[in-house]
């Protein structure tokens, strides 16, 4: 049964309800604001009249922005690095994390430590850039996926998770003649699905969000990702305006003419939407991932 609140308690509750309400609003309003502006009349949007609800709804912005030259290619690059990069890092983390649980491995402690310590130490941006350059990984699609294969944090997560699986399962498989690869595939992978799902989602989000590597390594526009293209649009107003003028069907229509602002907002929405769409599904994996990570091996 619920106790009746004292007046001071009620006041305290009231205050924190309001504070949390305001902060929550500040977290989601920007997304909402952008969305209603991209689907409202561009004239009203340019005048700053769209604040709380959309007016004169249309979807021209989306259909036109998708035709900007380079944008759909950048989208493909983003999808490629997200899909391939995630697949490789999850596979590698699962397998290496599992191998590191094998006490028989020659030099296991040294190898494991030397992987983990890379979380705390880096040679620095420039030495890293020079190395990538010497490996011919500048202006190269492989640069997006090879360096992320080994993500120490993921390996720690898998190792900790596998160590919690009763060893008897593997032992009985070994009796039946299953080798390392076989028991990895038929015993470990099915049992570690929850943690593999967690790292899949985290890797995918971080691949999708990456842009610094593009800034460093790619000078040829065909390697640009959506994130980087968006950054360019935000910083180069004049070139964006020129781009709009040069695309025939963008400036042509009198109604809902594309402006640098409308293009920026729409591209931002296009880049953010995939994350907002998958968010409800991966939300429940957070706590699991964080807690295992906190009590690391």
């Amino acid at each position: 049964m619920r106790k009746k609140l004292k007046p001071s308690d009620a006041l305290f509750q009231g205050i924190i309800y309001v504070l949390f309400g305001l902060f929550t609003l500040s977290c989601i309003y920007p997304f909402y604001y952008l969305f209603i502006n991209t689907i409202s009349s561009n004239d009203l949007s340019a005048a700053g009249d769209i604040k709380f609800y959309p007016q004169q709804i249309h979807f021209d912005n989306y259909s036109k922005v998708l035709r900007i030259s380079g944008l759909s290619h950048a989208a493909l690059v983003s999808v490629y690095r997200t899909v391939v990069g995630t697949f490789l890092t999850v596979g590698a983390s699962a397998f290496l994390g599992y191998l590191f649980t094998k006490k028989e491995m020659w030099g296991r402690q040294i190898w494991y430590r030397s992987v983990v310590v890379t979380m705390y130490f880096s040679a620095g941006l420039i030495p890293w850039y020079i190395t990538m350059h010497n490996l011919h990984l500048t202006n190269n699609y492989l640069a997006y996926i090879l360096p992320t294969i080994i993500t120490p944090f993921n390996i720690i997560l898998v190792k900790t998770f596998v160590e919690a699986i009763p060893p008897s399962l593997e032992e009985s498989a070994a009796m039946d003649g299953a080798g390392v690869l076989r028991s990895f595939w038929s015993i470990i992978v099915p049992l570690t699905t929850p943690i593999l799902a967690t790292i899949t989602i985290f890797s995918a989000v971080s691949q999708w969000n990456s842009f610094i590597d593009t800034a460093f390594l790619m000078t040829d526009t065909k390697y640009y990702t959506l994130q980087f293209l968006l950054w360019r649009y935000l910083n180069e107003s004049s070139s964006l305006a020129a781009l709009i003028r040069s695309s025939p069907d963008m400036a042509a229509s009198v109604q809902n003419m594309q402006t640098p602002t409308s293009v920026r907002m729409t591209v931002t929405m296009i880049v953010v939407l995939p994350i907002l769409i998958v968010y409800p599904f991966f939300q429940r994996f957070f706590v699991k991932g964080i807690m295992i990570g906190a009590v690391k091996g």
Partner: peptide
Amino acid sequence: ILVYALAFS
């Protein structure tokens, strides 16, 4: 970049 894009708008 997206945070900045939101701030920008």
